[in-house]
């Protein structure tokens, strides 16, 4: 049985200009210990989809799905109180901005033990010891003294390590990492990713990695989910995605990688992700798609073989995939 099953997730926001569909038909199936990467430009609804699962969206969000099951429990039907028993414990999430994601008014120790107190109850003394152990696990030197530190006394990388310690405190079955390295130095990025993958292996937890970084995807993920303007345009095992991108958007994303650039200029995808008020008709990607045809501008594309496109690509890009994977491994 799969650990997480999401089918046809739709998230809509009621705004002054009508209803805005931020997530439109996302499917995700995860087994225990899987690593899935969710990629796509900013504004593709990657974070929103995961926040919907966590129940962290504001009340203006309207969430619906055909299926949203985690570990045998229906996440849609449960009350907020029931969901609070699960999030932070069995599903937890780390965020993009480590410096602002920790509360400036409380010590690191307080913020970590708070999670333990909330979900496990029990004695304060043992929580303290567990917090030290967690800080050790995430590679923070002198953990005993760090417990008394406030977030502003730590660097961004250290804060992210604390966040990770806090979120793996109850040994979650699923960890969602929402661009965990975007706000960090390049040298620290690799360390944090290595840490996440190590922890994932040690604890056998599933990992959802939201990222912009294709090199990261190539290096860590088993499966990739490509999102565009809230729609899931493609979902494939990582090697297949790199060698045979089916959706023109995936293809364009891969082409934008410096490693794949054949000329002196880096390739880019012209234009931006459509917002609420500039949605095209037909395929949402058609204004930016190089292979768009008349049909793409009028009719919504069907899902063919997991690819949301009228004319999915066929063919192989194996040579350049190898370059990306090697590049990723060396980062």
């Amino acid at each position: 049985m799969s650990l997480l099953e999401i089918r046809n997730l739709v998230v809509e926001f009621a705004t002054a200009h009508g209803v805005f569909r931020a997530v439109d038909g996302v499917n995700l199936e995860l087994a225990k210990g899987d690593i899935v990467a969710v990629v796509g430009e900013s504004g593709s609804g990657k974070s929103v989809a995961m926040l919907a699962l966590m129940g962290l969206l504001p009340w203006t969000a309207n969430i619906s799905a055909d299926v949203m099951r985690f570990d045998g429990q229906d996440m849609l039907a449960m009350s907020n109180a029931q969901r609070r028993q699960i999030i932070g414990k069995d599903i937890s999430m780390i965020f993009q901005e480590p410096m602002t994601s920790l509360n400036p008014c409380f010590t690191v120790g307080y913020q970590i033990t708070e999670v333990l107190r909330q979900h496990l109850g029990g004695r304060r003394r043992s929580h303290q010891a567990r917090a030290i152990e967690l800080l050790q696990q995430v590679g923070i030197p002198a953990p005993e003294s760090r417990l008394r530190a406030y977030p502003h006394q730590l660097s961004g990388g250290m804060c992210q390590r604390v966040m990770i310690a806090m979120m793996i405190a109850c040994q979650p079955k699923l960890l969602i990492a929402d661009e965990p390295t975007t706000a960090l130095d390049v040298t620290i990025q690799a360390q944090i990713l290595d840490l996440l993958v190590d922890l994932q292996r040690q604890h056998g937890m599933a990992l959802v990695l939201i990222t912009h970084d294709m090199a990261v995807v190539a290096e860590t993920a088993d499966k990739v989910l490509v999102q565009y303007a809230g729609q899931q345009v493609e979902q494939k095992p990582v090697a297949e995605l790199f060698s045979q991108p089916g959706h023109p958007y995936t293809h364009a994303l891969l082409n934008a990688l410096p490693e794949r650039s054949s000329s002196r200029l880096l390739e880019a995808i012209p234009g931006v992700v459509p917002g609420q008020l500039d949605r095209p008709t037909g395929c949402l990607f058609n204004p930016r798609c190089q292979s768009a045809q008349a049909l793409c501008r009028t009719a919504e594309p069907p899902r063919q073989d997991g690819v949301l496109c009228h004319f999915p690509r066929v063919g192989d890009d194996t040579a350049s995939t190898q370059a990306v994977i090697e590049e990723g491994a060396s980062v």
């Binding site: 609070r84 699960i86 932070g88 965020f95 994601s101 920790l102 509360n103 979120m167």
Partner: peptide, 9 residues
């Protein structure tokens, strides 16, 4: 950090 607190359940 309020979102974090909510994510902690």
């Amino acid at each position: 950090y309020v979102r974090t607190a909510r994510a902690k359940g």
